[in-house]
Design a binder for these strands. Structure first.
Lengths: 222, 222
DNA sequence: AGTTCCGTTTCGGCAACTCAAAATATAGAA
DNA sequence: TTCTATATTTTGAGTTGCCGAAACGGAACT
């Protein structure tokens, strides 16, 4: 049985919640429910079904964890999503701020044939327009640990590698201020009290952003 | 309320059944059920719902007819389907024989934004790889009446314009024998008893095909 | 008029997915 | 230990889309 779009979305959400999972490596049901935008009870029901099909391990009252099979499936969904995004930007010339919604639909529908053709046409890219890594066809991901603008050293040139947020307005903001992946910037100061971070961009302009926004910009020290 | 994939498929089937509709311009429920591959009772239920939303006119025991609203919606589904097919062939380099299945899925999911970009990238094509006309964004279609290889004059050069069948094996056969839209051929003879039609292709090769196959090849007398 | 046949409709039921609200579990505070 | 807050699970119910089988309508044949 091939997984429904709904199942794919649950798996994807669990995969992406990996970062924010709790002590035991379990994702609480509530968090999952929020991610897939359903009522908690709905998530409980679905998770039991997923456990039934061996895609997750379910510990009542504690949370869920992807099984190896679930992890692989989720990685493939993410592969499709990210290749589609890269394709929409590189080939179709769409804005990186607006491709997420389209990819969200297409990821459940593009055939293997088509996705591999996109992959080849793009030269087998390793990351999508937001810097998110693209899993391989067998479900493996090259994962790196990056600093964010919150944790990197001050006064040192750094390069934006990845943006961990798909909000279109935020992405448009980043584009306008030369903060897309690949751009070089520098953190001049942080003010925890003001909840802000001061940046200097490549073209010598100064911008102040909130710490929440800063935490979404992952960087590499140059 | 935006139409579900299921609704889109029913409307599309009705639109395409226009050719084979009965006296009153009504499509019998049984035919519709066959087209969308559901049991007759399922089609009856769905048709009542469609009538409820004003997308079709339903005459119990007689059949269904698309309303103006339904016709427009169906045309837009077909527009997406055919533009996607053209895109897959022209841009993605896929075989015309294999794009139908992919398009069948994508037609329900590609956004207006994306479809218009494809349209522009393709130079606003008027037909898809099978010669089927592509409706405009406002739902209009340039429709022509063509002869088929069954009704055209004998011994006269004709050009293949359109193939009214999406079967992959049939399409591959046509490709192998230079019978794709655009190719010039000639009907040498017809044998109703043998249920066959004899052709001579552009490269002087002779082929005999069945009358059913011949009826699927629409042509223009040169 | 009665019968037969075929297509259509109605009926009861099932599967996937969802919600709201009641019941329950867990963990931390009193 | 008992109480309380919060998260989770259970329950009952609704929606969409589907099926199989029984009931029905209409046209044609006796």
């Amino acid at each position: 049985m091939l997984p429904s779009s709904t199942v794919e979305n649950y798996l994807k959400a669990l995969y992406q919640a990996e970062a924010t999972r709790n002590e035991n490596g379990l994702v609480p049901i509530g968090q999952l429910a929020t991610a897939v935008r359903v009522a908690p009870g709905t998530a409980t029901t679905m998770v039991k079904a997923l456990a039934e099909s061996g895609l997750v391990q379910y510990e009542p009252y504690l949370g869920v964890r992807l099984s190896p099979a679930g992890t692989k499936l989720a990685a493939l969904v993410l592969r499709r999503h990210r290749l589609v995004e890269q394709f929409l930007v590189e080939v179709m010339g769409m804005s990186w701020a607006e491709v997420h919604e389209d990819a969200e639909q297409l990821e459940h529908v593009v055939s293997d044939r088509l996705i591999e053709r996109m992959d080849a046409m793009l030269g087998h890219p390793s990351v999508d327009p937001h810097g998110d890594p693209i899993p391989t066809a067998d479900g493996n991901v090259e994962s790196h640990e990056y600093h964010s603008l919150l944790t990197c050293p001050l006064g040192t040139p750094v390069k934006v590698i990845r943006v961990a947020d798909q909000n279109a307005n935020f992405l448009r903001f980043l584009e306008e201020h030369k903060l897309k992946p690949g751009e070089s910037i520098e953190v001049e100061a942080r003010d925890p009290a003001a909840d802000s971070v001061q940046l200097r961009t490549d073209d010598e302009r100064r911008i102040t952003i909130g710490t929440n926004a800063a935490s979404k910009l992952l960087i590499e020290v140059l």
